[in-house]
Simulated assay, not measured.
Amino acid sequence: MRRLTYLPAAQRDLIEILTYISRQSGSVALGQDFVAWLRRQCRHLAELPGMLGRARPELRPDIRSFTVGNHVIFFRYRDDVFEVVNILEGDRDIDLHLSE
């Protein structure tokens, strides 16, 4: 099984998602539950064999993506590591965000 890691950018994304959902819903618990669900999705992807997701060479040569709900998980495989690069809402300008 691959080891799951989150780059600092992905950790910031999760904090932003938590903050946004908590503010919009008025419930920190709802934000925490959603972020926990996203983390479970990442863990599930890391546990599956083979190379998953869609290759995204237009963004970076080693990046792949997988859509969960209305969010997109961007990740890469590094030997025995499943590295989460970013987690973004699907309607964001992904090209702009990943180029920053």
Rank of each mutant, 00 (worst) to 15 (best):
M1G: 10
M1F: 11
R2P: 04
R2K: 14
R2M: 08
R2D: 04
R3W: 11
R3G: 08
T5D: 09
Y6T: 02
L7M: 11
P8N: 07
A10E: 00
A10R: 01
L14G: 05
I15M: 13
E16R: 12
E16F: 08
I17H: 03
L18P: 01
T19A: 14
T19K: 11
I21L: 10
I21P: 07
S22P: 03
R23T: 11
Q24F: 10
S25A: 05
S25F: 03
G26Y: 07
S27I: 04
V28I: 13
V28Y: 13
A29H: 14
A29N: 15
L30Y: 14
G31Q: 05
Q32D: 09
D33H: 12
F34M: 02
F34L: 00
F34K: 02
V35F: 00
A36I: 09
W37L: 12
W37C: 08
W37R: 10
L38E: 03
L38C: 04
R40D: 07
R40T: 02
Q41F: 11
Q41R: 15
Q41V: 13
C42A: 07
C42H: 03
H44Q: 13
H44M: 12
H44K: 11
L45Q: 07
L45K: 03
A46W: 05
A46S: 11
E47V: 10
L48A: 06
P49Y: 05
G50T: 04
G50Q: 04
M51P: 10
M51R: 15
M51N: 12
M51S: 13
M51A: 12
G53F: 00
G53A: 00
R54M: 12
A55T: 08
R56H: 04
R56T: 06
R56L: 09
P57V: 04
P57H: 04
E58G: 09
L59E: 05
L59G: 02
L59T: 02
L59F: 06
R60P: 03
D62G: 01
I63E: 07
R64A: 10
S65L: 08
S65P: 09
F66I: 08
T67H: 11
T67Q: 15
T67R: 15
V68T: 13
V68H: 12
G69W: 07
N70W: 13
H71L: 06
H71I: 08
V72L: 05
V72S: 00
V72K: 04
I73K: 04
I73A: 00
F74W: 00
F74K: 00
F75T: 01
R76W: 08
Y77L: 14
Y77D: 07
R78H: 13
R78V: 12
D79K: 15
D79Y: 14
D80A: 10
D80Q: 12
V81E: 09
F82V: 01
E83W: 01
E83V: 07
V84T: 02
V85Y: 07
V85R: 04
V85C: 01
V85L: 06
N86T: 03
I87D: 00
L88W: 01
L88E: 02
L88F: 00
E89M: 10
G90Q: 13
G90I: 08
G90W: 05
D91R: 15
D91M: 14
D91Y: 15
D91I: 13
D93R: 01
D93A: 02
D93E: 03
D93L: 00
D95R: 14
D95Y: 14
H97Y: 15
H97C: 10
H97E: 14
L98F: 04
L98A: 06
L98T: 06
S99F: 09
S99P: 05
E100T: 15
E100F: 15
